[in-house]
Design a protein around this nucleic acid. Structure first.
Length: 599
RNA sequence: GCCGAUGUAGCUCAGGGGUAGAGCAACUCCAUGGUAAGGAGUAGGUCGGCAGUUCAAUUCUGCCCAUCGGCUCCA
């Protein structure tokens, strides 16, 4: 232990210390709780407890509930604040295995940790502050009462979590806390979270009438309204345009497929649980709603003999896919049972991989720039400790991973490597988008696959007449249009740029008297292909403005007697405020350009 | 799927063993208005579903369904 406790504690050390403080508070109020693990996380800390124990010898708890609920958080927080002043020093002492075991004899979780520490040949240390001692490897604020401001943390929520993150192990109770250096930083974080809540796509999807769900249709099956479908299909059409530039040919394939297709591709073995089966009264084979497009695309490739001259062959597909996600995993548009992808597969020769991946990455960059979304790249590799999760030979994998890594390096693209994130058939370059609030989402992906082409016995005739196996590149530009729409709603806070906006212009007559002129303007706008509507309500202009602002419409055209006389419209821009009056024709020219530019 | 919470009018919510209430939205009327809510009135609900307890259940209990916060998973 460092004997000069003059170093200010880092935020991570404070958070870790607060996890201990939480455990101490829990022990006071719920003496039967078994503490397990409590680390610092990027907005605070958590600690996992097992409250299921019934062998609590002392009945001092006086608590009716064996397990705390949200209602207990305030009390626990209070206890933490009461204890904090007495935590003047947090000291570690090394102990023997036997000492450690006897101290935690009733806590099988700590015993398991002791086993691991011992197995690794590391030292066992106990840390004590106030009256509370925990098994821990260290990394705390050394003077908690001085280092930690009592108003810089708050208990946040309570949730279930599996011991060791393994769903076959016991479910523990996790208590999350938020913690920052100061009260101000904590409040700033909470305010930012409030802002995120306002932008929640599930909330905005309802308010802006973009999509809905129905118990009768089923969970995870989104119903897009006319407004929402404009956003969705605008996303798809843009991806389609980018695909065309890349030389893709769009295909159309059925939703129901024989199980054999997925047995050969390997998906049946890997994901049978995640596939929805369909039964036919005539066809005996087990059939499935397709969870992805790649196996079908192999069959289009295989429908003709292919020459090396034909390659690359590129197929794109926007089909709806179905995956039997577990109910607890569904969430708005970001996790669905029925969703599409802006999917594409490239069949090419090995010497074409680099150029193909490069052009796909360029298209992704272009799309991200259009959507004004920042992103970083992740090279997703196989987990070398768990090769059974993947199909294909070591040699193939090493080759594929090295091709991707070299390509990224040669293009001077910065990336992070992530083991265990690969697809079961090959490594991926995943594009991680960062939205307006700094949250990360995995969207696009480029995957190298040497496995499926050979399993489907795909081939082409090489220059020398020999039969060779093509390489398959799986790729998406923005991933899933449905999911991406959810991300975009939050990214823009519902204020879509004109090209994506369900309604681009609303005409607001000041009173009923200008109704005819408003209709005239509407007709002109619609003839120019602009998505426009008129607010015909018998309400004040103030009310109409308010309604339009709440709908976050890009442009409002106010028309009164003055505009009728001058043959103009008064333009109110969502992003630039009140603009000068202009002729309808001039406005049409301006907004049409903006839409065309996807500005 | 697991742990926990929630489900009341189109939306946001209040209420509570004796068949329900507000604001906004909707509809009607008045007002005809110049950049974020003009006024008045009307209508609207088997209180998520199915059972059970009870003289009586929207309220209590159980089981389902859905949603939310996490965990796990994500081809």
């Amino acid at each position: 232990m460092d004997s000069t406790p003059s170093n200010p504690a880092s935020l991570e050390e404070k958070r870790h210390t607060l996890a201990h403080l939480l455990a101490a508070a829990v022990h006071e109020r719920f003496p039967h709780a078994k503490a397990t693990i409590g680390p610092a996380i990027d907005n605070g800390f958590y600690y996992d407890f097992d409250f299921s124990s019934t062998d609590s010898s002392d009945g001092t708890a006086g608590h009716k509930h064996a397990t705390p609920t949200e209602a207990d958080l305030a009390g626990l927080e209070e206890t933490m604040r009461e204890l904090l002043p007495s935590w003047n020093e947090m000291l570690g002492t090394e102990v023997s295995e036997n000492d450690a075991r006897s101290r935690f004899a009733k806590n099988e979780y700590k015993l398991e940790i002791i086993d691991e520490v011992v197995a690794k040949g590391e030292k066992l240390t106990l840390y004590t502050a106030g009256d509370f001692t925990d098994l821990c490897r260290g990394g705390h604020a050394e003077r908690p009462s001085k280092d930690i401001a009592k108003d810089s943390f708050v208990l946040d929520r309570i949730a279930g979590a599996y011991w060791r993150g393994n769903e076959n192990k016991p479910m523990l109770t996790r208590i999350y806390g938020l913690a920052f250096n100061t009260k101000e930083e904590l409040e700033a974080y909470q305010a930012q979270r409030e802002e995120a809540k306002k932008r929640d796509h599930r909330k905005l999807g309802k308010e802006l009438d973009l999509f809905t769900f129905s118990d009768l249709v089923g969970s995870g099956m989104p119903l897009f309204t006319p407004r929402g479908n404009i956003v969705r299909s605008s996303i798809i059409n843009y991806s389609r345009e980018l695909n065309n530039e890349l030389g893709f040919g769009e295909v159309h394939t059925p939703n129901v497929n024989k199980g054999d297709l997925f047995k050969i591709s390997g998906h049946y073995d890997q994901y049978k649980e995640g596939m929805l089966s369909v039964h036919s009264q005539y066809v005996e084979d087990e059939m499935f709603l397709k969870p992805m497009n790649c196996p079908q695309h192999t069959q289009i490739y295989a429908s003709q003999p292919r020459s090396y001259r034909d390659l690359p062959i590129r197929y794109s597909d926007f089909a709806v896919l179905y995956r039997d996600e577990r109910p607890g995993e569904l969430s708005g548009l970001t996790r669905l049972r029925a969703f599409s992808q802006d999917d594409g597969h490239i069949f090419c020769r090995e010497d074409q991989i680099e150029a193909e991946v490069e052009s796909v990455l360029a298209a992704i960059q272009k799309a991200l720039a259009t959507y004004k979304i920042e992103a970083w790249m992740r090279l997703s590799l196989r987990d070398p400790q768990n090769k059974a999760k993947y199909i294909g030979e070591d040699e193939t994998w090493n080759k594929a991973e090295e091709i991707m890594r070299t390509l990224l390096k040669e293009k001077n693209i910065t990336f992070k490597e992530a083991e265990g994130e690969a697809a079961f058939y090959g490594p991926k370059i995943d594009i991680m988008a960062v939205d307006a609030l700094g949250r990360e989402w995995q969207i696009s992906t480029v995957q190298l696959d040497f496995v499926q082409p050979s399993r489907f016995q795909l081939e082409y005739t090489a220059e020398d007449g020999a039969k060779k196996t093509p390489v398959m590149i799986h790729r998406a530009l923005i991933g899933s249009p449905d999911r991406f729409m959810g991300i975009l709603i939050e990214h823009y806070g519902g204020a879509f740029p004109a090209w994506l906006a369900p309604v681009q212009v609303r005409v607001l007559p000041i009173s009923d008297k200008q109704g005819d002129y408003a209709q005239e303007v509407l007709t002109t706008l619609r003839a120019a292909g602009i998505r426009a509507e008129v607010d015909t309500a018998s309400e004040s202009l103030g009310k109409k403005i308010r309604d339009a602002k709440m709908q976050k419409l890009p442009y409002l055209l106010v028309v009164g007697d003055k505009e009728i006389t001058d043959k103009t419209v008064s333009v109110e821009s969502r992003d630039h405020g009140k603009l000068d009056a202009s002729s309808v024709a001039d406005f049409v020219t301006k907004i049409s350009q903006e839409i065309k530019d996807r500005a």
